[in-house]
Computed example of a mutant assay.
Amino acid sequence: MKFTRDNGLSERRGTAAEAKAAQLQAYKAAREAAEPMNAARQAERLAVAAAREQRHAERDRLKAEEKARLEAEAEERQAATEAAARAEIEAREATEKNRISRVLEDEAARKAERDRRYAARKARQG
């Protein structure tokens, strides 16, 4: 069978334009039909992103608390070390002062004994 229609340029262009318009209408209809699903998916994505941000914020908060706790412990250890060093220095100084005071007392006692012997000798001679 022979086609009786003449597929000229203008007819082909018209058919292509009609097909293009039909595709555009089908796309718009599909887009409008999918709009509620897209909105639901977008809301779900936003909820997931918000939950992720919340988890990140919580993790950052916990890291900051842990860091602060470790710093506080380090400061406490440093303070304890310094206090122990200070106590050791003070103990050494106290020991040194006691030794010096004992030496001075011993020397004073020797002088007193010497003076007593001198006075006793003078009393016997005189």
Rank of each mutant, 00 (worst) to 15 (best):
V103R: 14
V48D: 04
M1K: 15
R102W: 06
E88F: 03
D6I: 14
M37G: 08
L104R: 12
T81E: 15
R5V: 11
E18L: 15
A29G: 01
S101F: 10
E58C: 05
Q54M: 10
E93L: 15
G126I: 04
A34T: 01
E93D: 08
A29L: 07
A19C: 07
Q23K: 11
E88C: 08
Q125G: 06
G8A: 11
A57Y: 03
E58N: 08
E71W: 00
L46M: 13
A16L: 13
E96C: 01
M1I: 11
Q54K: 14
H56A: 12
V103I: 14
A80R: 07
A21V: 00
T95L: 15
E82H: 03
A84C: 05
E96G: 00
D60W: 09
R12T: 00
E105Y: 05
R31L: 07
T4A: 10
E44M: 06
K111D: 09
R114W: 07
T4I: 11
F3C: 08
R114Q: 10
A16D: 07
A72Q: 09
G8N: 15
A21Q: 11
R124G: 04
A51K: 08
A22M: 10
R13M: 14
E53R: 09
E18C: 10
R110I: 04
R41A: 07
R92E: 10
E53K: 06
A112E: 14
A19K: 12
A21P: 03
E18H: 13
R31K: 14
A120F: 07
S101I: 08
G14P: 00
A84R: 12
S101T: 11
A17D: 08
E93A: 13
R99T: 06
A34W: 05
T15F: 06
A112I: 03
A68E: 10
E75Y: 00
E11V: 00
E11W: 08
A29K: 09
